[in-house]
Each structure stands twice: as structure tokens, then as C-alpha cells.
């Protein structure tokens, strides 16, 4: 035992480790960290892997990563929140990503986004209260030739209009609370 931490922290770390031991995903993450020799510079790679496995990064997961890479938790949190690709909250059942890159913007992506916002009553980065739909924006998804583009549950859709977007949302939202 190298040192004793204040009781709460020790307890919390212990709880996280206990929880982790029963979850296969933590094992995969652990292998990934091992491949990077638990080096601090692998932090971003490790967070990518963690998000891929868990879908989002909650505090326990971040604490686990900090513990394993021997980093202050504040460093891990600081990095995780700097990069917009990382999400600290779970997404809804469906995701709607509206491209707001320049090409899409000049072709009316703002109207598509506004229509979705109005309909789902959420802003970009938010999830509907019933957790059915998350709305996100992207800065160019490389489909500029097909602008304006949107990604519905991982599938790129070309030449969107407010109507086509609402059509897509309809099925998702009626299954929810509306």
C-alpha cells in the first residue's frame, strides 16, 4: 500500500474497480491501455476506446481511466471536455446530426436545423426528455457535394429540406412521449 487516501476517495475508487471487475468492457479497455503501456500520452486514444465501448464517458469511467493511467482526475476531465467528440452524457435512442458546415449552411442547413429544433423542442447537444432523440450538429461530414446533409442514426442523407427532416423525425417522436 503506497499511501492512504482520504477515506471517501479510496472508497470511491474501490467501488469503481469492484464494478469494473464484473464488466467485460472494462477488460477490453484495460487491454487497450496495456497496448499503450499505460502511458499518459495515450489518454485521448483510451478515451476514444472507452466511448466506443460505453457510448459515453461517465465520471466512474473517467475515474477508472485516471486510476489506470496514473493521472490526476482533473487532467482526465479537462481533456474529455476539451474535445467535442467526447460526450459525457448518454445519447437518446435515435440521433439526428445536422451538418452545419459552410457548404450545407449556404444551402439552407440552418432552416433544416430550425425545423428539427422546433419540432423536437431541443437544442443541439440536447436529448428529448423521453430520451428518444438526440440532436447534434456537425461541422462538415465530407458530403458537401450533397448539401445540405444530415445523418440519421448513422446513415448520411443527402439534400435535406425542413420537410424531409421532419418526416424522418415523425416516426421517432411518435414512438416517444408525444
Amino acid at each position: 500500500m503506497p499511501l492512504s487516501l482520504p477515506k471517501d476517495r479510496t472508497k470511491r475508487v474501490a467501488a469503481v474497480m469492484e464494478h469494473a471487475s464484473g464488466d467485460k468492457r472494462f477488460k477490453i479497455l484495460e487491454t487497450h491501455m496495456k497496448r499503450h503501456q499505460y502511458k499518459a500520452d495515450a489518454l485521448i486514444e483510451v478515451l476514444h476506446k472507452a466511448q466506443e465501448l460505453f457510448g459515453f464517458l461517465d465520471n466512474d469511467l473517467l475515474l477508472f481511466v485516471a486510476y489506470r493511467l496514473k493521472l490526476p482526475p482533473s487532467r482526465v476531465y479537462g481533456v474529455a471536455t476539451f474535445y467535442h467528440f467526447f460526450t459525457l452524457k448518454p445519447h437518446g435512442k435515435h440521433t439526428c446530426v445536422v451538418c452545419m458546415g459552410t457548404a450545407c449552411y449556404v444551402k439552407g442547413a440552418d432552416r433544416v436545423l430550425a425545423a428539427v429544433q422546433d419540432k423536437a423542442k431541443i437544442r443541439p447537444g440536447e436529448t428529448t426528455p423521453d430520451k428518444s432523440v438526440s440532436l447534434l450538429i456537425a461541422r462538415c461530414i465530407g458530403a458537401c457535394g450533397l448539401a445540405p446533409a444530415a445523418v440519421y442514426d448513422g446513415t448520411i442523407n443527402a439534400r435535406q429540406t425542413p420537410e424531409s427532416a421532419l418526416q424522418q423525425l415523425k416516426g421517432w417522436l411518435t414512438n416517444g412521449s408525444e
Partner: peptide, 20 residues
């Protein structure tokens, strides 16, 4: 100690302690 850090970015950056 490494307690404090900057989290977030841009104008929404803030000083945090540990895991916020």
C-alpha cells in the same frame, strides 16, 4: 496536487476541481 484544471473550451471554459 493536480486538483485544479481547466475544463471545457472557449468562453465556456471553467476551472474545476478533480472530476468537477
Amino acid at each position: 496536487a493536480g486538483t485544479l484544471n481547466t475544463a471545457g473550451r472557449g468562453a465556456r471554459s471553467q476551472i474545476i476541481a478533480d472530476l468537477i
